[in-house]
Nucleic acid binder design. Structure first.
Lengths: 341, 341
DNA sequence: CTGAAAGCGCTTACAG
DNA sequence: CTGAAAGCGCTTACAG
């Protein structure tokens, strides 16, 4: 009470700017929002006052009347360690963050391994706390997330299971074709016992890459079932490699559905004294830093992760602005040849 | 053109709940906020109405009157690839996210390599868009961030340069002592040519760990200057290892200031045909997944990264609630012995 | 081109 | 214990 004047370090309001500039609140609001129907001199005066008072619009007040939060949720349905552990995500987030930088939107981070219908994140998304969401790494078991697009503008990173729905937007690569390309490279090397370390069977990326590997083998008239699933982690890749070798020691090549898993496979092969690519040739997937971080430089299928992230963000923002966008955006891949195959 | 947001029914308001329950807005507000001075029966009625209408308070309206955003910024003054590339951060963020989960706060992610005084993030933080901030990985060159604590409640992950200021809160370990512990282990192994791959010279964690290495050597009467700085990345560790060996091929041990850099060093030693720990013993720092992800299981100094993250969040939230907290919280470390030393 | 006025959905003294 | 009323800081028809 007594020290009120001292504590009043409250930021300036529209009202105060209006007073300082000798105009009405409405007018100040108009220049703040770039309305064209304000006379040049008034615009100048108001801007001067804004500058002088260091005025910044109150976000909550704006949200209240505009019914927009100007916030976007980044939803990561994964263990934190999986998410942060894979350089692929680093690139995607980098792209997203970069695209957001030039917008007025803010990114809310939501990492959770389970999206129960009444988890905090689930409620948060449902209750209008954000204008839209970007979902990366989508498992088919996340039923809630699958239906999220009905509630909120969403863009998925990677094709979600219900990708045929008209309101499901996503950015992806042609995983099957990309995997086939990697596998064909192995075939071109003269390899015939070409196994695969696949991604999780509950993720489209896992499924599609496996299909691509299969397709390439079929084209070459090779038939076998040398497949083990990993979980896109180093340890998972190592485990799968061991299982594969147990089943068939004559394997001479492996197409691995992610570089991270490939590094796990490499470690196992090293321990067993196998030479790469001499004994076993390896083709990875992603071309993430993991491909070049180990002691074997991996030949791998590049997907433009950072650009994919940027595209996810820009697609979502465009939708929020009511602009026209593609529903599905497929980016190109290519083989990067290094030492492992 | 997109008619997707056609007639999405507006969410129910306090007003509607009040009407449904046959009471005033004030009363509904009181039960929503858990006021004790509402009669039990009314509470029940109101809650029933809330349930029935699926009412959720409007965040913006609340923010506007309460002058609180209920948002916390997670500020990462690093390249995205650096941030996501290091499992240490994964653990810290995991801890932060976990602590936030049980609160009403939301996490805004801000990754940027430069915090110019008028960058988007800088303005964002200054302009009252969040109630507080957590800053991880602080470089002394980030002058703006150093002063951030004057503007906003902030908790730093790791001691910031101006850590003696009374309003600077942080969570950390005793980096010097922890590094000395790691180095002493090497000394105990009988090594004498003990080099170090240090962290950046502009980060307290880098500086302090170097000091600890120095201290341990001094205690043992060892004197030399075998130090190379890395940037906490795999590549940086590899580079430093090469430089060290160039300067002195007789090195028989290395204390490395992060596990990630240690894996880079290991790769280089492998390529040169050096055995670990036979020719060169290695002690890392962090005990992050990087310590056990490669083909050499690293002996390392454990810091409780996840707990540190939790503590950062809980400290900040406590401050925002006006509760008493420690200004500085130092957590314990210990040596984890594995194969590299 | 400009201002007065209503309203966005909530909270909180202030009176009963 | 409860309600009427004022107000948080903004935007936007609506009249001039």
């Amino acid at each position: 009470m007594t020290t009120e004047s001292r504590t009043r370090r409250l930021p300036p309001t529209l009202e105060e700017v209006a007073a300082a500039a000798g105009v009405s609140r409405s007018t100040v609001s108009r220049v703040v929002n770039g309305s064209t129907k304000v006379s040049p001199e008034v615009v100048e005066n108001v801007n001067a006052a804004i500058e002088r008072l260091n005025y910044v619009p109150n976000r909550a007040a704006r949200s209240l009347v505009n019914r927009q939060t100007m916030a976007i949720a980044l939803v990561v349905p994964e263990e934190t360690s999986r998410f942060f552990g894979d350089p692929y995500f680093a690139e995607v987030v980098h792209g997203i963050a970069h695209a957001m930088e030039s917008s007025d939107y803010v990114l809310n981070l939501h990492v959770a391994s389970r999206f129960a219908p009444n988890s905090k994140t689930t409620k948060y998304l449902r209750d209008g706390n954000v204008d839209g969401a970007i979902v990366v790494s989508h498992h088919s078991s996340d039923i809630f997330l699958s239906g999220l697009g009905d509630t909120l503008p969403v863009v998925f990173g990677g094709r979600p299971i219900n990708s045929d729905q008209p309101n499901v937007y996503y950015v992806d690569v042609d995983n099957a074709e990309a995997a086939a390309m990697g596998t064909r490279h192995l075939i071109g090397l003269g390899r015939t016992r070409i196994a695969t370390i696949a991604g999780p069977a509950d993720m489209p990326a896992g499924i599609d890459r496996t299909a691509g590997w299969h397709r390439a083998l079929a084209e070459a008239g090779i038939e076998h079932d040398l497949i083990e699933h990993g979980d896109f982690t180093v340890a998972g890749g190592a485990r799968a490699m061991r299982a594969l070798l147990d089943r068939d020691p004559s394997i001479d090549a492996v197409f691995v559905a992610s570089d991270l898993m490939a590094t796990g496979a490499v470690t196992v092969l090293r321990q067993l004294g196998k030479s790469i690519p001499g004994d076993i040739a390896i083709v990875g997937f992603d071309d993430s830093p993991a491909a070049t971080g180990g002691d074997v430089q991996l030949t791998t299928v590049l997907q433009p992760s950072r650009e994919m992230g940027e595209k996810m963000a820009s697609m979502l923002i465009a939708r929020l602005r009511g602009e026209e966008t593609d529903r599905v955006y497929i980016m190109g891949t290519r083989l990067v040849k290094r030492d492992s195959a």
